[in-house]
Design a protein around this nucleic acid. Structure first.
Lengths: 219, 219
DNA sequence: ATAATAGTGTCTCTCAGACACTATCGA
DNA sequence: TCGATAGTGTCTGAGAGACACTATTAT
């Protein structure tokens, strides 16, 4: 065992969701110092006695502080240094999670969703972590099913199309989008249709179970 | 400050290089327990007193244990849990580095290069870390200049072409390859040509300075 | 001249975007 | 019937692979 001081080890999670057609980051108001009272990423110490792995530490923190058991949790990267935390040298192993609006409603009511393009000042280097998560989500969206996790388990192709457009930030041709998303076989037809309004009802789809979230080609 | 036990924090680096047209992983024989005498990834503790950040910790370890100051160092991910290290709960923040054969020759002579497809048994979860690094290198090679760091600073288009083929593992049409690599403007003509053998000499190129290593399109 | 590798021009075929078309509902 | 959104068929143009071609050297 090392006989010199070791860094503080924490996990932090960037929760991303889509509200009113805009990407939001879901934050939690800190109760304890440092930065008590500020909105921040949900996070906590790695607990040697409770956690079997880093991912399990992140899941425990999400369960405890946010009341969430996410469908998709992905490691973003680690941020560490001597200046990011006033308590001393610290490492944040960061994760990000795409959430549907429904998942967020069932979660802890103390969570606060903030538009991704209008974030308040954040403590530590959480602004940099959020920026990295948004970059990653946007980047991977062109070749993965990640944006589908911003929707509920059943969704229509038009809904999926809109989500991709919002996350990537560009227009996508509806016909090409359908073609590619069906070829990639990452979604599958579900039973039932969504009927709302005076128009043709839309077929429901779900994510194909057990599929890798990466596509062969770009969307 | 937390009043409970914290994990051990280490950095490990996967050094990748190309020798005799084959991808190799460069390892170091461990002098200290645990696993003394085994080949392992170069790594070491994060030193709160010496390192200003995780990346600097990785650079310090590389400088000290391998005699290297790499041109490209990229975070791979973090691996942590209660079973990966017999000393206790530990976190490895892992990096990977593509090296040219020349850089390796100037490095510490105690380094040992092992073919990537014939690795010896490795301690800790180093086999999983190496596998992740190889997956990442292969994956990013289709849309980044990463493989160019496996070559010396000056190289010919034919050399670059061969490196991409070896790393990705498929044949690439020479004409298409030239077209795309020149369009992406990630390499630039250097002065001079390489003349070797009884044939037309090849123009030298270098990586364009200050360019992001990612391409717009796939190679 | 020849052999060897460097590098280019061009054909074709695939696939993406564009967009007009059909489908199906409520009012 | 009309308006709205869902979903399809088809044209076209850009770009990728294929491959024949030229370029330049040492022997």
């Amino acid at each position: 065992m090392p006989d010199f001081p070791t860094p503080i080890a924490t996990v932090d999670v960037v929760l991303l969701t889509l509200l009113r057609e805009r990407l939001h980051v879901v934050l939690l108001r800190r109760g304890d110092p440092p930065f008590a009272g500020m909105l921040a990423l949900p996070g906590g110490y790695v607990r040697v006695d409770e956690d079997a792995s880093l991912e399990e530490a992140a899941r425990r923190v999400l369960r405890g502080k946010a009341g969430l058991a996410p469908r998709h949790l992905e490691q973003l990267g680690s941020f560490g240094g001597d200046t990011r935390d006033p308590r001393g040298w610290s490492i944040s192993v960061s994760y990000y999670v795409p959430l549907s609006a429904g998942e967020l409603e069932g979660a802890s009511p103390s969570l606060e969703a903030v538009p991704a393009d209008a974030l308040p000042p954040l403590p530590f280097d959480h602004a940099a972590i959020v920026a990295a998560a948004l970059r990653r989500l946007r980047g991977k969206s062109t070749y993965s099913s990640l944006p589908a996790f911003l929707l509920p388990p059943l969704f229509t192709l038009a809904e999926l199309h809109r989500v991709y457009e919002q996350v990537i930030g560009t227009r996508l041709d509806p016909a090409s989008f359908r073609r590619k998303v069906e070829e990639q076989q990452i979604i599958e037809r579900a039973e039932g249709q969504r009927r709302e309004g005076a128009h043709r009802p839309a077929q429901l789809y779900r994510l194909a179970p057990g599929m890798a979230p990466e596509f062969d080609r770009r969307i």
